[in-house]
Design a protein around this nucleic acid. Structure first.
Lengths: 165, 165
DNA sequence: AAATAAGAGTTGCGAATCGAAACTCGGCTG
DNA sequence: CAGCCGAGTTTCGATTCGCAACTCTTATTT
């Protein structure tokens, strides 16, 4: 078996991502934000989440730089939660999750499709691609140290249910 | 504002994805599985997760078809948890999350890079692409009903922190 | 064969988190 | 000024988490 990614040190970016987005509701709040909601009461009504939990999650999302909290200028009772650049950066992850869920959920064939609004064509399925655009599967990937980039790598032979590699 | 995705009905694929993968540890177990681990004790040791929780998560991942559980043939004390096709399908979502985490985590510059093992070149950053491969941002996307695919869509004007649309 | 160890879980239980409903409190509105 | 709205906070019972110890079956050792 080829080089293996060190797991122990929770270092990997995934850990950070999960700290920020891994709690219940965080992703659904993000989805709502992507859909243009930005008030406490909007999130509360749309998601049906308990108010204390919503409050807690919003605080954390703000602390982690995913949302920005600003009091409304026109009505000082209101507060606006807006996606930051960092928050927008989660779109690929969210869509990939969504596509996976849609693909494997028994029920759900969407009545709305996400399209390139320029030409109205559906977006491409999110996948893993080589620098030249070829789609790659897990068995075509390998770990390489930064200094050895460009030299081919032994493919790792993790094997799966049903069939070898 | 253009067409808005219905949130209320937890229908959307994201909800399903989160039911399956949204609990603490599930994603890290998946990551470990992608790294070639497949025994209870391996997961336990690598992740430092409590045994009862690990047990609980593995059951759920198996129930949801992400992992397959088979007793080892050579040693009947052992059990193997292998990624299924459905589990493999989570790789794009996991990598997108990971890339996001890596990009925004203060600390972590990885000492291993994921490469196309054929040529040793790093994979492309995961992003949203139109059918023709152009990368798209959120503001270039819109929702369309399946019957109207191909007709351009009003871009939704969700605005963000710091700057309009 | 008997004793010991390994692997994969369970059980018990205190600590932390979640969730529903009521409550607070400053800012608008009639 | 009386009442309402928006954004939280408080309370408190119900879950879930996490650690440690325990069980039970199947190898290994001696």
């Amino acid at each position: 078996m080829g080089m293996r990614e060190p797991l122990g040190e929770l270092g990997c970016g995934l850990s950070h991502a999960l700290e920020v987005m891994g709690e219940r509701w965080s992703f659904l709040i993000l989805r709502a934000a992507f859909n243009g909601l930005y008030h406490f009461e909007e999130f509360s009504a749309e998601l049906g989440i308990a108010r204390n939990i919503l409050s807690n999650r919003l605080v954390k999302l703000v602390e982690n730089g995913v949302l920005e909290r600003t009091p409304s200028e026109t009505d000082r009772r209101k507060v606006e939660y807006r996606l930051t650049e960092k928050g927008l950066g989660l779109l690929p992850a969210m869509l990939a999750l969504r596509q996976w869920g849609e693909h494997y959920a028994d029920i759900c064939n969407p009545n709305l499709v996400l399209v390139d609004c320029r030409d109205g064509q559906p977006i491409r399925k999110i996948g893993i691609r080589a620098h030249d655009g070829r789609e790659l599967g897990w068995h075509e990937l390998g770990w390489q140290t930064p200094d050895k980039i460009g030299t081919p790598v032994e493919r790792h032979n993790v094997h799966y249910a049903k069939e070898g590699v």
